[in-house]
Design a protein around this nucleic acid. Structure first.
Length: 472
RNA sequence: GGCGGCAUAGCCAAGUGGUAAGGCAGAGGACUGCAAAUCCUUCAUCCUCGGUUCAAAUCCGAGUGCCGCCUCCA
């Protein structure tokens, strides 16, 4: 039974979709004013694992991720660069897709953008005004929190405790109550303006997610996710907006991922520990190693990213790739043997069961990966001792494909070698055959300098790309 | 000040009452012409101090440290 830690209620709950096998999944996406940083991707990778695992468990997931292309930061950045908003956001939307592709994150089924859903937001705001949950003031529209008794339930915030003055800044907008939040913002110089039935202005941030999620997933849907910092106020406000509008329960399961730390500290540009994906790729870490590092820690635990940890992740991924290559390239002679057949079948079955049990429990990914590495060791033992039959190999590769569908880090990319380098490999094989060890070793060194590592096996010499040097 | 998260070997990290998964790094060994890959062996008593219990990393209390939220930061 699949279970999730639901932020709403703070306990482990059995996962029961509203209309199985369909699952509506909404994940809070990027604000496209700059490159996303590696902490953002921690969340996106978690959401990718969630989606992939739901699919593995037979659910028909409909995944929607919003793109926030109009809010304070995007406007400020576009103004600073002196370019139109859409030009700025188009640039970073493109970068975002490049990055998630590099990390092997599956594309959502839809990426609705705020600027393309102004009418839907206006309509929702009108409903909220009509039923008394919202009020217009000085050209803006605010949500009236006092009319929504459930406010604060998701975050556990006691709204009565928040009083004007102390820590709460009254912003430039006049509101009935400082706790009220903006649904629609009156026009200001230097800001984009939409002419709507509400008057001119632009949407507040929170309204886009409730409008767009309900448009594509319905008034009530299954799962909504984001980083922990979104719990309050963003998701709290979404609930108020949605339920205040429809009267129906908005979301069944709220899942939130913890933040990523760098060297046990919060990432910040001033501490010079702020990394985008591109920064880390430029340091030579393979994208798959980064994905592994981001995925291998449970999503509700802070992830402490260090360069040592990334080196370790790169090595772990290589161990998995080495195993995959070994099983794929298994020579026919060894593949004909079948002494280990029962062990293979047992190991495959046990591994699939262990991985499923672990992930069923709120995506217990560390335990699941532990089971995978146990499997790799057992299979390597079998391969050392007896080899496997062609049939068993197919069974193993079948499991491997399933695991890769879930984790997205097990199937190594196909590597190619230039004909010159391949020629050197052949020359060295000839040298070894003639026992010209010095020549053979010199050729091996040459290839190593070219980034090619050789492995001599009873069935011949294999080559692979050297793991990128990643020091400092 | 209010609310919440975390603290396990050199590093990353599982485990939430019965004598510490897994990965990386290290040490020794097997295999190898030498390597690489692989396998075997080895490497912690769980932040501190109290308490509950036959039994605690795991429950309770008090500390210490780090991180986050408290109006728009994944």
């Amino acid at each position: 039974m699949l279970r999730f830690m639901n932020t709403l209620g703070k306990c482990l709950e059995d996962f029961v979709p509203i209309a199985p096998p369909r699952v509506g999944l909404y994940t809070c996406g990027p604000t496209v004013y700059d490159h996303a940083h590696i902490g953002n991707f921690r969340t996106y990778v978690f959401e990718d694992l969630l989606r992939r695992y739901l699919e593995f468990r037979g659910y028909d997931v409909h995944h929607v991720m919003n793109i926030t292309d109009v809010e304070d930061k995007t406007i400020a950045r576009a103004n600073a660069e002196g370019i139109p908003l859409h030009e700025l956001t188009a640039r970073y939307v493109e970068a975002f897709f490049e990055d998630i592709d590099a990390l092997g994150i599956l594309r959502a089924h839809q990426y609705p953008r705020a600027t393309e859903h102004i009418p839907e937001m206006v309509e929702q705001i009108e409903k909220l005004i009509a039923n008394g949950h919202a009020y217009a003031q000085d050209g803006s529209v605010f949500f009236r929190i006092s009319t929504f008794p459930g406010y604060g339930r998701l975050s556990g915030m006691d709204m009565d405790g928040i009083q004007p003055g102390a820590r709460v800044d009254c912003d430039e907008y006049e509101k009935e109550d400082v706790r009220d939040f903006a649904l629609w913002k009156a026009p200001k110089t230097g800001e984009p303006v939409w002419q709507t039935r509400l008057g001119p202005g632009r949407p507040g941030w929170h309204i886009e997610c409730s409008s767009m999620s309900m448009k594509y997933l319905g008034a009530s849907f299954d799962i909504h996710t984001g980083g922990v910092d979104n719990i309050f106020p963003h998701h709290e406000n979404e609930i108020a907006q949605a339920e205040g509008c429809t009267g129906a329960p908005f979301v069944r399961y709220w899942l939130h991922s913890e933040h990523l730390l760098v060297n046990q500290e919060k990432m910040s540009k001033s501490k010079q520990n702020f990394y985008t994906l591109r920064d880390l790729l430029a340091r030579g870490y393979p994208a798959r190693a980064l994905r592994y590092a981001l995925i291998s820690v449970h999503y509700r635990k802070p992830l402490n990213l260090t360069m040592d940890a990334l080196d370790a992740a790169a090595a772990a991924v290589e161990r998995l790739a080495d195993f995959h290559r070994r099983i794929v390239e298994l020579p026919a002679t060894a593949a004909a043997a079948a002494a280990g057949s029962n062990r293979v079948v047992d190991a495959v079955r046990q591994t699939e069961q262990d991985v499923t049990e672990a992930l069923d429990e709120d995506l217990g990914v560390s335990t699941a990966l532990g089971a995978v590495f146990d499997f790799v060791r057992e299979m390597n033992r079998i391969l050392d001792e007896s080899g496997v039959s062609t049939e068993d190999r197919a069974t193993v590769l079948g499991l491997w494909r399933k695991l890769d569908d879930i984790f997205g880090v097990f199937q190594p990319p196909v590597e190619e070698l230039s004909s010159e380098l391949l020629g050197l490999v052949r020359q060295r094989e000839a040298a070894r055959r003639d026992r010209r060890w010095k020549d053979a070793d010199a050729l091996r060194d040459t290839l190593l300098d070219a980034g090619v590592v050789l492995e001599d096996t009873p069935a011949g010499t294999r080559w692979k790309r050297r793991r990128a040097a990643t020091t400092t």
